[in-house]
Amino acid sequence: MGLPTPDTSHLDSDESIYPPSEDSYLLLDTLSSASESAYLASHFASPSPAPLVLEIGPGSGIVTSFITTFASEIFGRRDVLTLAADVNPAACSGTAQTVGRNLKDAEKGHGIFLDALWVDLDSCLRGGEVDVLVFNPPYVPTESVPVFDENGNCKGESEGMIEAAWAGGKDGMEVTERVLKGLERCLSKRGVAYVLFCAQNRVQEVIGRLEGGEYGRNWKCDIVGRTGKTAGWEKLCIVRITR
């Protein structure tokens, strides 16, 4: 559809925030693709309650900003509410700034950004409220995943917040696993999740487990976005997960 990419240049110098990268751009391209926006517009057709979108781990806020600014283009309706949830407080304020900055010049037809919540994944969200969950996880396989206390301080020798943006533990799946296990609680009856995976995450096996009932129900999975193949491997892909 060729919608413009949100401006995040005000965050360029903040090294604690994950900068917009290939994975972020794949999410933008996928959500605004002709097929996906047609799916969302029909899935959330009016009249129905205003859809609530939650992005976990927004980082710079580029994806949440894009969804908020282009609610009409993506959902075919403008009454879209967006929320962001990040373990990094700099990403919370950065996301709010990015959304505000890009909404200034937005056409009528944009949605409403509610808040950025400083939280571990979706743990403070009431169950069954989220209609669209967007998650660009820390998906790089690593020895361990950083753990934070209630003040956002990191335990051990970890580099802290920026590491939390990419370090995914075993198979790069430790954090994603927690989100997948929580889908049944988090998503509304009409809920849709978009989760990004990389090749090392063994995405076909994960899809098999999702569809096979290992995460609370037999989820329906579709690969709706992918980057080009490198030596026969899909580098990154986005799986749409629905009830």
Binding site: D115, A116, W118, D120, S123, D149, E150, K155
Partner: peptide, 17 residues
């Protein structure tokens, strides 16, 4: 849960997770 500069902190101390 403290709220500061409009942002609420919902992180938990490790013993409550």
């Amino acid at each position: 849960y403290p709220i500061s500069q409009g942002i609420a902190n919902f992180l938990l101390p490790n013993h409550l997770v």
